[in-house]
Computed example of a mutant assay.
Amino acid sequence: MVRISANGIEINVEVAGEGPAVLLLHGFPHTWRLWTEVIPPLAAHFRVIAPDLRGLGETARPSDGYDAENLAADAEALLDALGEPTAAVVGIDAGTPPAFLLAMRRPERVRRLVVMESLLGRLPGAEDFLAGGPPWWFGFHAVPGLAETVLIGHEADYVDWFLDAGTRGRGVPREIRDHFVAAYTGRDALRGAFAHYRAMPESARQIAVTVASGRLTVPTLAIGAHPVGDILARQLAPVADDLRAHVVEDCGHIIPLDRPEVLVPLLKSFLDLDLGRAPRLAS
């Protein structure tokens, strides 16, 4: 692990391997260790960069800057600090909007884009998914100060609910579970997490403005599971020039820990094109 100064904050980041850069952006309630099963096989051919997002894990928790545009600026500044002019960018959950905006606004920095299990603001395509409103925790997390107050002392129970739901009851390895719980314990840790949700209206506005003035020209792979499925691909289809989509069967929201044996071949197949090799067949 190293700490890198970028975009005005200290970012905790795991760096492994050598080769073309691959930047991995996690979501909630995770840290860089979401990618535990993904990093070793990718690091055999790529320089893998897996940060804790702003406010999460061991990265700094400033009072602001949690909108997708600024998170994309964090990512770009991190690449600059590590001397990487370009990267393949992989985002899941809260990591998807900044990955998308980085590819839209700075396509010369993003060789390939992989996005998973998230929605992109209010872009068309998610109407059925949102027919009953967004998931309940979006509103709970969005109220300033409420979730922190309610959850103090119960962080483990809360994180466990998301880990169990996100793996369809299978759970994650105990060591990683304990790491996630520790990362989200305490008022300030919770505040950093929920700041991402409180910035969602601004992030949605940024996404809408960006899409209104341009197209996604970067080769893109959209991967879904349960519950998002193909919704993200539907949102991307009208704006993307080069889009592939895959839905992982019998898989929860936390794809990198629930079905790494499926995700890793998918990523390798897509990223191998950077190495001038024929893509592998993904199972």
Rank of each mutant, 00 (worst) to 15 (best):
E76A: 15
E76S: 13
E76L: 15
A77W: 03
A77R: 09
L78P: 00
L78C: 01
L78M: 03
L78R: 00
L78D: 00
L79F: 00
L79Y: 08
L79E: 02
A81C: 05
A81F: 09
A81N: 06
L82K: 11
L82C: 10
G83L: 08
G83A: 03
G83M: 09
G83E: 00
G83F: 07
G83W: 02
E84S: 02
E84V: 05
P85A: 04
P85I: 07
T86K: 12
T86F: 08
T86Q: 15
T86P: 12
T86N: 11
T86H: 11
A87R: 00
A88Y: 08
A88K: 07
A88R: 12
A88L: 13
A88C: 15
A88V: 15
V89L: 15
V89D: 07
V90Q: 06
V90W: 08
V90G: 09
V90N: 09
V90D: 02
G91E: 09
G91K: 12
I92T: 14
D93N: 13
A94D: 10
A94E: 14
G95R: 01
T96D: 09
T96Y: 07
P98T: 03
P98C: 13
P98S: 05
P98Y: 08
A99Y: 03
A99I: 03
L101K: 06
L101E: 02
L101P: 02
L101N: 05
L101G: 02
L101C: 10
L101V: 07
L102S: 01
L102P: 01
L102T: 04
L102H: 06
A103K: 03
M104K: 06
M104D: 05
M104L: 07
R105D: 12
R105T: 15
R105H: 11
R105A: 10
R106V: 08
R106M: 11
R106K: 14
R106C: 12
R106A: 13
R106P: 08
R106G: 09
P107F: 00
E108T: 14
E108L: 13
E108V: 12
E108N: 14
R109W: 11
R109E: 06
V110N: 04
V110W: 02
V110P: 01
V110C: 03
R111K: 15
R111S: 13
